[in-house]
C-alpha cells in the first residue's frame, strides 16, 4: 500500500532522509520513532507530496506521489500533532466542510455517525471547536479521515499532549481502522504508545532508518532500551 524506495531528501549538503526503504501493507500500523530532526516528519511530508524527493520514490497504492500528487489524494488522510481546524465551526460543520472538499456529501445523520465512530461524544457534535479539548479535536481529525474512506493514514505525533485516557482511546480507534484494512504510518516520540498500537516499529536517527522491529517480538522495556541505544 505504502512504499518508499531509496527515498532521499537533501537540503544542500544536509541530508534529512537517507535512502529509506519501507513497505507498509494494508491493515498495518507502522510507528516511526526518533528524536527531533531524525527524519520522521520529512518521511510523512514526502508521502503527502509536500516535498519533492532528491532521490528515490514514494508510492501509495502503486501510484508515484511525486508524479501524481493529486491522484494519491484519494487514498490518504493526514492528522497533525494538533488538529486546529476551524474554531468557529461546530464538530459537524467542520466534518461537513472537509468531507465536501473530499467530494463526499453526507447527510447530517451520516456526519453524526462518522463522529461517533471516531469516538466523539454526541453532545459535542453541535459545539464549536473552540470549546473542544485536544483529544476531542484529534477525534474530529480521525472522523475526517474515516469520512473520506482513506486507505492510508499518515499521523504526525498524534498523541503528543493527550492525557493517557484520550491517548488510549485514540490508539483503540487506530487499531479499529487498521482492522478495516487501513495502512497507517505514525511518527511519534511515545515509545510505549508505539509498542501498544503498532504492528511494526522503525527507529530513525539522522535521516536513516536504523532498525525495524515487529512490535510483538519485543517488550516495552526492551524497545525503550533499544531506542536509547540507537539514538
Amino acid at each position: 500500500m505504502l512504499e518508499a524506495k531509496n527515498l532521499t531528501k537533501k537540503y544542500g549538503s544536509y541530508t534529512a532522509l537517507n535512502k529509506l526503504n519501507l513497505t507498509i501493507q494494508e491493515g498495518e500500523i507502522f510507528a516511526l520513532l526518533g528524536q527531533n530532526g531524525a527524519g520522521k516528519t520529512t518521511t510523512i511530508n514526502l508521502f503527502l507530496g509536500f516535498l519533492e524527493p532528491t532521490e528515490g520514490s514514494a508510492t501509495i497504492n502503486g501510484v508515484s506521489v511525486a508524479e501524481y500528487p493529486q491522484e494519491i489524494k484519494k487514498y490518504l488522510a493526514y492528522i497533525p500533532e494538533t488538529v486546529m481546524i476551524y474554531p468557529n465551526l461546530t464538530g459537524i460543520e467542520n466534518l461537513q466542510y472537509f468531507s465536501s472538499l473530499a467530494g463526499f456529501d453526507y447527510s447530517k445523520k451520516e456526519l453524526a455517525d462518522l463522529l461517533s465512530r471516531a469516538g466523539l461524544q454526541s453532545q459535542a457534535f453541535e459545539q464549536r471547536l473552540s470549546g473542544y479539548s485536544k483529544g476531542m479535536r484529534q477525534k474530529v481529525g480521525i472522523a475526517i479521515a474515516i469520512a473520506k474512506k482513506a486507505k492510508v493514514l499518515l499521523l504526525d505525533e498524534p498523541t503528543s499532549g493527550l492525557d493517557p485516557k484520550a491517548s488510549n482511546e485514540f490508539s483503540e480507534i487506530l487499531k479499529k481502522l487498521a482492522a478495516q484494512g487501513t495502512a497507517i504510518l505514525m511518527a511519534t516520540h511515545d515509545i510505549f504508545r508505539a509498542k501498544e498500537v503498532a504492528t511494526r516499529i522503525g527507529i530513525m536517527k539522522e535521516g536513516n532508518l536504523q532498525s525495524v522491529i515487529n512490535a510483538g517480538d519485543i517488550s516495552a522495556n526492551e524497545l525503550e532500551a533499544l531506542y536509547l541505544k540507537t539514538v
Binding site: L48, F50, Q70, K73, K74, L76, A77, Y78, I79, P80, E81, T82, V83, M84, I85, Y86, F98, L101, A102, G103, G141, I144, K148, D156
Partner: peptide, 14 residues
Amino acid sequence: QNGVLKILLCQKAS
C-alpha cells in the same frame, strides 16, 4: 501554522 492546510490539501481540492 496549525497544520490545517495539510489536512485541506489531503482532500480532493487542489
